[in-house]
Write a protein that binds this DNA or RNA. Structure first.
Lengths: 177, 177
DNA sequence: AACATTGTTCAGAAAATTTTGAACGTTCCC
DNA sequence: GGGAACGTTCAAAATTTTCTGAACAATGTT
């Protein structure tokens, strides 16, 4: 006699919750954020009361060290709030369930920062290619016509970068989500 | 006597190109696409004539095996085109410089697919939580009030997913970029 | 037919990332 | 002060991901 509560079709709630957590991990991982981030957030998203660090580590089957770092990461994105319970020295956490907050305060700035690096490099490369270099002796194997084409492309990339950055910065997107 | 062509300030073109390539790699890596993808694309983006597999592998200092796989990946995203030169058995590649094509044909479908998995799981979890379970004996430690809250959250997540998928699917975004 | 050239595949090696246990710093209580 | 309860940090271990060399298939050349 197995105490597998759910009667017909479908897994028990515990099992389904586990799947949800793993799916969260896979999703965050797929976008280059690490698997723990998604797992921890997904878990808190389904928790109706704040959880302590130990609770979280235990549920995720992970060391307290991992839990600590991943939660601070999530907190820095405003994806998780720290709750102080009077007369209890533990830190409790709950998920921010308003995605627009997480997007606006956490994810977007992160994405923009990542793009920033790329943008800076495009700029530098463009400058380097624009180098007058008026008939420099060793004019390095780049024919003038090619040079023009390269500049055209770089400017195009720069434009894309600027438009993208603008969209991500605008409140429009965050509002829409 | 160093033959470092560029006169004042700034690196030589070769050096700057190298930096551009690495920046491309870092960017793609930051978004979970692997470092090679960005390096290969960045390199072809600056190449004014199609390059063979060997050229590419040599320039990136990478085995032919790596080059082969990364190029097929890029081709599947329409980020790179294969060029056939008459009477030459080699495959030549050139970059698609129109980003909207890459976005629309390559990246967006990939992103949507990644989100699809998450969406499916949300759906399943929602169903599992909606399980009538009319006073099942072992009603698994979930208070009715909590259950309601969880369902609310899951529906909210589902909505976000749907909106997101819709935006990504619409031609609007691709057109804007 | 034997050989050359080229791209692909895949098991294993190399490299990068993630996870952990142990040491430590704080704060609180006895 | 001594000790217990927590969270954090960090070097090292475990795991995952990426890369490579060798074997191979396909096509063309002598």
């Amino acid at each position: 006699m197995f105490s597998n509560s759910s009667s017909h079709q479908g897994l028990s709630w515990a099992a389904e919750r586990h799947r949800f957590i793993e799916a969260g991990g896979n999703t965050s991982h797929a976008f280059g954020l690490g698997r723990m981030i998604g797992r921890a957030y997904a878990m808190l998203y389904l928790a109706t009361s704040p959880m302590s660090l130990d609770d979280i580590a235990a549920t995720l089957r992970v060391s307290k060290a991992s839990a600590s770092t991943v939660l601070r990461q999530l907190a820095s994105w405003q994806a998780v709030r720290q709750i102080w319970v009077a007369g209890d020295r533990k830190d409790y956490y709950e998920a921010e369930t308003d995605f627009s907050v997480i997007l606006k305060e956490g994810l977007m700035p992160g994405v923009r920062k990542k793009l920033q690096t790329a943008g800076t490099q495009i700029e530098k490369t463009l400058q380097s290619s624009t180098q007058k270099a008026p008939t420099t002796p060793a004019n390095e194997e780049v024919a003038p016509a090619d040079q023009a084409e390269i500049r055209r492309r770089l400017r195009s990339a720069q434009q894309l970068h600027q438009r993208l950055d603008k969209v991500l910065g605008s409140k429009l997107l965050a509002r829409f989500l």
